[in-house]
Amino acid sequence: MPVITSVLFIISIVMLFGGGNYFLAAQRAGVYPPRRVLQQRAVTIGGAGGVMFLLAIFMTWAV
């Protein structure tokens, strides 16, 4: 079980950083794809990373 929670923590951190990267890319001028698409990707990936982080925390408490 500790291996699973460690993997979930790592994946969630990577997804949160990815969402942050898309968010920062949306703030720059002259980027492609359009700003709206980058913001949608940031919310989607960041939200999924947050859910996985909460799941990993709950799994840690269950053990």
Rank of each mutant, 00 (worst) to 15 (best):
P2Q: 12
Q40S: 14
G46L: 05
P33N: 04
Y22C: 04
G18F: 10
V3H: 07
V31F: 01
A48I: 09
F9I: 09
V43W: 05
M1A: 12
L38P: 02
M15D: 12
V3M: 06
R35N: 11
L24H: 00
L16N: 04
A25K: 10
Q40M: 12
R35L: 07
G49K: 07
R35K: 15
R41H: 06
M59I: 12
S12E: 10
L38D: 01
Y22F: 15
A26S: 15
R41D: 04
M15A: 14
A56P: 06
V14A: 15
G47Q: 02
M1R: 10
I57K: 07
Q27T: 00
Y22S: 10
G19D: 03
A42H: 03
L24P: 00
P33T: 05
F23H: 02
L8S: 07
L38T: 01
T60C: 03
V43R: 07
I57W: 12
V14I: 15
T44A: 08
G46S: 05
G18V: 05
I45Q: 09
R35Y: 09
N21V: 12
I10H: 04
P34T: 11
F53A: 11
L16I: 15
T60M: 09
F9R: 13
T5L: 05
V7A: 14
P33Y: 04
F23N: 01
A56E: 07
I4F: 13
A48C: 08
T5F: 05
G49C: 06
M1F: 09
M59P: 13
A48H: 05
M52C: 10
S6N: 13
F17Q: 11
Q40C: 06
A48M: 12
M1S: 13
V43F: 04
R28D: 01
G47T: 03
R41N: 06
G47W: 00
L16Q: 08
I4P: 04
V63H: 08
F9A: 09
R36P: 06
L54Y: 09
T60W: 07
R35E: 15
G49M: 04
V7T: 13
R41F: 05
A56G: 13
M1L: 08
A62Q: 11
V37Y: 09
V7E: 10
G50H: 01
F58I: 14
Y22V: 01
Y32S: 15
G47D: 01
A42Q: 03
Y32V: 11
Y22P: 01
I13E: 12
V3S: 08
L54E: 05
R28N: 00
L55D: 09
L16H: 04
N21W: 12
A42Y: 03
M15V: 03
R35S: 13
A25R: 08
S12M: 06
M52F: 14
L24W: 00
V14S: 14
